[in-house]
Nucleic acid binder design. Sequence first.
DNA 1: GGTGCTTGCTAATGCGCTTGAGTGTCAAGA
DNA 2: TCTTGACACTCAAGCGCATTAGCAAGCACC
Lengths: 348, 348
Amino acid sequence: MPTRRSPARRPTMKDIARRAGVSESAVSFALNDRPGVSEATRARVRRVAEQLGWRPSTAARALSGEGAATVGFVLARPAHTLGVDSFFLQLVSGIQEVLAERHLGLLFQVAEDVADECAVYRRWWAEHRVDGVLVVDPRADDPRPGLLDELGLPAVVIGGAPDERHPGLSTVWADDAGAMASVVDELTALGHRRIVHIAGLPDLAHTRRRIATLRAEAERRGLAEVESVTTDYSDAEAAAVTREVLRGRTPPTALVYDSDVMAVAGVAAASELGFSVPADLSVVAWEDSALCRMVKPWLSALSRDSVEFGSTAARELLALLDGGAARTVRVPVPRLIDRDSTGPARSG
Amino acid sequence: MPTRRSPARRPTMKDIARRAGVSESAVSFALNDRPGVSEATRARVRRVAEQLGWRPSTAARALSGEGAATVGFVLARPAHTLGVDSFFLQLVSGIQEVLAERHLGLLFQVAEDVADECAVYRRWWAEHRVDGVLVVDPRADDPRPGLLDELGLPAVVIGGAPDERHPGLSTVWADDAGAMASVVDELTALGHRRIVHIAGLPDLAHTRRRIATLRAEAERRGLAEVESVTTDYSDAEAAAVTREVLRGRTPPTALVYDSDVMAVAGVAAASELGFSVPADLSVVAWEDSALCRMVKPWLSALSRDSVEFGSTAARELLALLDGGAARTVRVPVPRLIDRDSTGPARSG
DNA sequence: GGTGCTTGCTAATGCGCTTGAGTGTCAAGA
DNA sequence: TCTTGACACTCAAGCGCATTAGCAAGCACC
C-alpha cells in the first residue's frame, strides 16, 4: 500500500478572504486590479495572498470565462524524423520568453501530419485548452488557416506569406524572396552561373517562395542553368540529390541548401565525389547554426535570429488575444554570413 | 473595428442532455462509463455527443477534481544555448506518443536554470496546471526531487540513478556504467591505453556516473593515463578541450565524447592539429544521431532509442497518475555502433 | 403485503473563480 | 433636511463537469 504523503493543500481565494477579513469578491477585485476596494484593503489582500503563496487556479479561471492562459504549438512531423534541428527549439524558447512574462503556458504537441494537426486544434478548441495557437510550416492549400478562422481560435502563422483570405490570422514572416535575391547576387558576383537550389518540402509556402524567387532572379539575369530540386529535408535525400546533380553533364558550380543539415550532408556527398569546396563548388546553407561551424570548410549561411523570430510571433499572438486586429509582420531579412564554403566560380 | 466572427459555441453536457432528453447527470454517467444508466440511454447519449462534437472541458474537469489532464516538462537551459540537439525533440515525441493515447496535454517550458525550474513547478502546482511532471538532467544535490515530493506532484526523473531518498518519484534511466564499460572494453581491445573522456556538465548525475565508471574500469585494467574532462556541452568548449588534450606531451589515442555534437566539433579540432581519425585517434560519441553520419569519417557512437526512452518515461508517469507505486525502470544499455572513427591504437 | 433490493434516473451540491446586482455609509449638492 | 451618488464592500449566480444523495418503479422473498 503506497502511503501517499498528505498532499499540501493549495490555498484558494477563500483562505485569503478569511485571513484578510473580507469577502471573496473583494479578494478578486483586489488581486485583479479592479476598482471596488480601497488601496489599504488591496494592499492587505495582496500581502496575504503572497504569504500564502496563492496563485489563481487556471482551471477555475478558464471556467469563468477568462481563457485557459495557454497557447498551443503543434509540430507536424512524424516522430522519428525529428532530427538535428536547432530552429524549432530556438523558436520555442523565443516564444516562451514572451509568454512567461504573462505566465502563459505553452501546450506543445507533435503530430503526424497536417490532418492530424487539424484534429489537435479541434480537440484543443473543444476542450477549451488554449486561447490561441502558433502555426508553423504553412503550405500551399493549407487547411489550417480556414479551420482556425472557423473555430475562432486566434492564431499567428509563422513563416507564411501574407494571406488576405484569412484576415483573422496574424502572420509573421521573413522575406525569403529578398534573402534568395541576396544569395543570387553574391553568387553571380563570384562568377557563378550554374546554380542548383536543393530545397525542402515542395508543399511548404516558403519553399515555393524561394523557388519562385530563384527562377525570377535567374531570368532577370539571363541565367539558363539554374534550377531547384525539392527534398524531404533529410540528410539522406540531400546527399542523394547532391550526388545526382553533381554527376550531371555540366554540374553546377554553386549549391544552395534549404537547411543547414542538408548543406552539411551535401558537402560530405560532394567531397566523396571529389568536389572540393569552395574550389570546385560553392555552398550556401539556408539557416545558420553551430553545425555550420562544426564542419570543414565552415559553411556560409543565411542567418537570422530564430529566438527573436519566436518572440515576435508570440507578441503578435498576445496582441491578438488582447483583442487587437490581425497584422502581418515582417522580421528582418536573413543575412548571408560569408564563411569558407563560398568562393569564385571555377573558370571554364 | 475588427469584426470578430461569431465564435462557434462549444457544446456542453447540457446541450447533450437536452437533445437526448435526459438529465445532465445521466449524460455524465453515460459518457464516463459509470453505472447508473441503461445501455440504450448510454448509446443514445454517446451518439448525440459525437454528433455535437462534444469534448469535455478540461477546465471544468480539472475544477471538479479530476486533474488537469496535462503533464509538465521543463528544459532548464538558457534560451540561446539551445543548439543542435536531437535528443530532446525525440524524447518529447516519444513522450507524446504515449500521452496522446489518453489525450493528455504536454505543457512545455524552457527555464534559465534549476532554480527557475523549481519556480515553474511551484507555479504549475499552485495554478493546478499539471497532474505530474517529467524531470530531465538530474544532477548532484538536486533540489527538484525534494520539492516535487513536498508538493506531492507525481514525477518521473529521466536519466537519474535510483534515488532511495525520494520514494515518491519514479526513475527511468539508462545504465551509463554498463555502456561506459563496453566502450572501454572495445577501446582496450583495440589496444588503446590512453583514453580521454570529454564529458558534459560536471553537475549532471549521468556525467558523474560515467566519470566514476571510467575511473573504476581504468583502475581495474591498470590503465594509468585515463581521465575525464568536463565541459558545458558546447561545441566550442569541446573543441578547445580537444586541442588542449591533444597538444599534451603524450596525447591520448582515443577520445570519448559525451555528446554527438561535441564529438563532431572535437574531430574537426583534431584534424586541424593534424590528427587523422581513426589512424591517429579513435573517437566515440555518446549519443547517436544523423550528425554522426554527416561527417567524415562516420562516427562510432553509443546509440539508444530516445523516442522509446521518452515513451517509457511517459508510461511510468501514467502509472503513477493511476495511483501506482513509484518504480525504477532501466532502459536497455546504449549499444556501441562501430563506424569509421574507431580503429586500432597506433602502436608506439 | 410489507420489507429489502436493484435498476435507472433526477436533483442538488461543490470545485475556485469572476461578475453583476445589491447594501450600507458618508459626503456633497439641492 | 432630504436626495444623490460615489465608494467600499458583500451576496449570489454561474462557468461545465463529477458526484452524492434521493426517488420512483419494478422485482423477489418470506
